[in-house]
Amino acid sequence: MAKLKPIFLLFITVIFILLGCGKGKTAFTMAGSTAFQPFAEKLADQYMANHSNVSITVQGGGSAVGIQSANSGAAQIGMADLVILPTEAKSLTSIVVAKDGIAVVVNPKNQVNNLSTDQVRDIFNGKIANWKEVGGVDAAITVVSREAGSGTRSSFEQIITNITLKKDALIQDSNGTIRETVANDANSIGYLSHGLINDKIKPLKIDGQESSSESIIAGKYKLVRPIFLLLKDAPSGEIKNFIDYILSSEGQQTIQKNGLIPAK
């Protein structure tokens, strides 16, 4: 029994510390899009550093979870990165806080630099199955896509239009694993968030337009999706202050510095 005493005391202390933390604080939760999650975490950290009375929890889960939890109240702010919001989100207040380009990427060894929207569609549908049909070497194309329900995938399919993904396309469950797969396979093609491009993969021009920040802001590059914050009611109180902070020049700079495109 004597041995348990310090553990018991520690336990009590921890509980009191936790209780003390909650006192007098406004707490709210953000959940949803994994593409925006790291940005939301950074913004929340910066905001909490200056507003010690606010505590913000950021969770992932995907765009569908963002919409669902904003609807159910499980999170005060939902995050979603979809071109068209589904009907469940119609009753929610939506605010665009950033834009994200979707880059179509291939292995750096690939000679192809540019594809038209039609060619991208045909490749993902399986109608074009060899790189030589689009000006590359004679090798079968390995198509890599995301899992059903992914915000990046539905945005990609909505912008390219008429995609019925070919049956033997590889499916990876995150932007990061798409990047690894394409970096490892010289004949593969995939798509991922613009912010995650590095030198292991090569972004393609689409209809002659680069997927650079400048080209996205100028509205020339077409594979762009908005990132929404979703709220059940119009924002008020600390939540409104936080959203104002995200939309302020400081918040937008944080977003841009880390690879997304500012909302305006």
Binding site: G60, G61, G62, S63, A64, V65, Q68, E147, A148, G149, S150, D168, L170, I171, D173
Partner: peptide, 22 residues
């Protein structure tokens, strides 16, 4: 040499997005 998806992989891959019937 074909790529395949197992029952377990199907659950784990789509779980985080699935709502309703899915």
């Amino acid at each position: 040499f074909n790529s395949v998806r197992t029952l377990t992989a199907n659950i784990a891959l789509e779980m985080s997005y699935a709502t309703g019937l899915h």
